[in-house]
Simulated assay, not measured.
Amino acid sequence: MKHTFLRIRISEIGALLGTYLVLSLIYHITLYINRTGYNNPDDILLHPTFWFDDAGLQYSLMFIGTIVVWFFVFRVFQSWVFWKRLLLHFIGLPFFILFSWQLYYLVCEALGMGHLRGSGQVWDIYIPTLIYLVQFGLIHAYEYYIINQRKLQYEIELKNTALKSELSAIKAQLNPHFLYNVFNTINASVPKEMEETREMIAELSDLFRYQLKASREDLVTLKEELEFVQKYLKLEQKRFEDRLQIEIDIPDKLLNRKIPPMILQPLVENAVKHGISPLVKGGKIDINVAEKDHKLVFEICDTGVGVADKNTVFNKGVGLSNTQKRLQKMYHSSLKLSDNVPSGLRIQFEL
Rank of each mutant, 00 (worst) to 15 (best):
K238E: 14
D286H: 15
L327P: 03
I285R: 02
L207C: 12
F298M: 05
V307M: 10
L88N: 02
Q58D: 00
Q135C: 02
K253N: 15
R75N: 10
H140Q: 07
K336M: 08
R209E: 07
R346Q: 13
D42C: 00
R239L: 04
L86M: 13
T312W: 05
Q245R: 10
K295W: 03
W80M: 10
I347N: 05
H28R: 13
D124T: 09
Q211I: 04
A214K: 04
M262C: 04
Y105F: 12
D309W: 08
R243G: 01
V73W: 00
M62I: 03
N288Y: 13
T36R: 12
A308D: 14
I125A: 09
L345G: 09
I10W: 10
L179A: 14
S165Q: 09
H177S: 14
L167I: 13
N288P: 00
L337S: 07
E109Q: 11
R9E: 14
L25F: 15
I13F: 01
K336F: 09
G114K: 06
L46V: 07
L207M: 14
P41A: 11
S333Y: 00
V220M: 05
P342Q: 02
L327E: 05
Y105S: 07
Q328N: 12
E193F: 14
M262R: 05
Y38E: 06
T4F: 01
K159Y: 01
S333Q: 14
L45N: 11
E193K: 14
S334Q: 15
I285V: 08
I248P: 09
F314N: 02
H28Y: 13
I287L: 15
H115E: 06
E203N: 14
H177K: 06
F298E: 01
L337D: 07
N340K: 06
N39C: 05
L6Y: 12
T36D: 15
S343A: 13
S79A: 10
F74V: 04
L57H: 08
G112M: 04
L86N: 08
V313N: 07
Q153G: 13
